[in-house]
């Protein structure tokens, strides 16, 4: 009977344990300081600014290569940054500046418009992929989408060079080809990075807004005509 009661209340004995009030609770609290200072090798406080910037630029450039040669690696996802997207976005917006229509009036793609399209577009795509049950984090997706604008930025640069030489049917055909190829490239590269994080049966639903996003940007690049 007593044993059964004991078994039914296994912690009953613990309630009797108490600390008497006349014993002051005191002692030394020492935080163990790590003897091996591993921080030293990673300290960036006293290195030259040039080195810091160069290291970051090298990381950005490394990711550019990943976009240009999109093999299924997680380098773009693992250590994301938004410097590359910012750089590409500003470059694209600057290149699209000074179009025919906005010299006298509004209507051409303006700096702010490009900026807003790129960032809000990526945010919407990211939210969409989250809603569809993707496992990628918010900034990882922003990073991938931003870096994958690079083929289109290159296409824009090519278009400006082509437009210097003239604006006839041949020039339009060249631009059409360049923009189409870079559009396909962007979509393919971003899909290669993003698709793994999605549920396999819903890839099409995630890819569609990405396709639309790069299509709008590609369209802006194709319809750009400089002021004369």
């Amino acid at each position: 009977m007593a044993a059964a009661e004991e078994a039914s209340r296994p912690f009953a004995g613990l309630s009797d344990v108490s600390i008497s009030e006349d014993i002051p609770v005191e002692g030394d609290i020492s935080v163990p300081v790590g003897s091996s200072r591993r921080d030293d090798e990673f300290s960036t406080l006293d290195e030259p600014v040039k080195e810091t910037i160069l290291r970051d630029l090298r990381a950005v450039g490394n990711k550019f290569i990943h976009v240009l040669y999109p093999k299924r690696s997680s380098a773009l996802l693992r250590d994301w940054d938004l410097w590359g997207p910012l750089l590409l976005c500003v470059t694209l917006a600057l290149l699209l500046q000074g179009g025919a229509a906005d010299s006298d009036d509004q209507g051409g793609p303006q700096f702010a418009e490009v900026f807003v399209i790129v960032w809000f577009g990526s945010i919407i795509i990211t939210l969409n992929s989250k809603l569809l049950g993707g496992t990628i984090s918010f900034f990882q997706s922003l990073c991938v989408l931003g870096y994958c604008i690079m083929p289109l930025t290159v296409a824009m640069a090519v278009c400006r060079i082509v437009l210097i030489s003239g604006s006839g049917n041949v020039s339009f055909a060249v631009r059409l080809v360049v923009v189409t190829v870079s559009f396909g490239w962007s979509t393919f590269a971003s899909t290669a990075f993003l698709a793994d994080s999605q549920p396999p049966n819903r890839k099409a639903l995630v890819v569609y807004p990405v396709f639309l996003f790069y299509f709008v940007i590609g369209w802006m690049i194709l319809t750009f005509s400089p002021s004369q």
């Binding site: 509004q106 209507g107 303006q110």
Partner: peptide
């Protein structure tokens, strides 16, 4: 070639 006075096309 639509031109919008206030605001952008987008």
């Amino acid at each position: 070639g639509t031109v919008i006075r206030e605001g952008t096309l987008m």
